[in-house]
Amino acid sequence: MTEQRDPHGREGSGPDGQASDAAAPVPETTVWQQLTSFRGNSSRGTDIALGAVGFALLLAIWSGLVVFEVVPKQYLASPQAVVVRLWELLTKYDFLDDIWISIYRVWFAFFLSAIVAIPLGILMSSFRIVNGLTEPIIDFIRYLPVPALVPLTVIWLGIGEASKIALLWMGTFFQLVLLIADDARRVPREYVEVGMTVGAKPSQVLRHIILPAMLPSMVDNLRITLGWCWTYLIIAEIVASDSGIGYVIWSARRYVKTPEVMAGILAIGIIGFLTDQFIRWLHRRAFAYLR
């Protein structure tokens, strides 16, 4: 996956100003030199191309492993078999319903996480008493492995939707709230003091300064946390469920239907990738002022 933060490349040509002297020939660099230069410039086009090359390489290695039977067929299906299976699942076996239910679970739990974590995180950064009371608890729970909580959620909430949502919520909330609190703390002190010296009350400083100032990094953290949601979703759906992508994967495993297992994984990968790219795109649009 391409990890690019600056789609338009760095501004200008650096302090040595390559364009300063029209007569001096610019030393020629090969494409290879440009791509491998230490912390060199990047452009949107090359980033996309490199990403595609990465995927192609992965596919090639995968195909190679299957074609030359380095790994037996029942353990590793060929890319074509996986895609074909995914298509069959979608068209003949109502896999789309499972995808929707999984997406719904992820987004609903994530939404519940965010609407509690955002205000609490901001309050933690603003008031010592809130931070003092909550941070040790959050830090403690944060280190509990989510799978260890599965039995409890099943005992408390049964095997319906509630237990899955609860599990996802616990997996993301305690991480997210600390990230949000950090985002709020990183707002420059000067911004806050500007607010106070133009007569803003604390609540106005929060709303009109801290919130807009922390928003870009907060959206980034939400994006990353949304990714974790998918991890916990599969755990939740494997343990107690009769629907969802995780359920499909787990049922297929029982009959060693490797192509079907891999098709499920592929579906998650595609959804995750598209969501991630979409939020990045939104980020670039909404926070164009950062560049």
Binding site: P188, Y191, V194, Y289
Partner: peptide, 8 residues
């Protein structure tokens, strides 16, 4: 001393 205007 630092630039304290709001970028948004």
């Amino acid at each position: 001393q630092s630039y304290s205007s709001f970028p948004w």
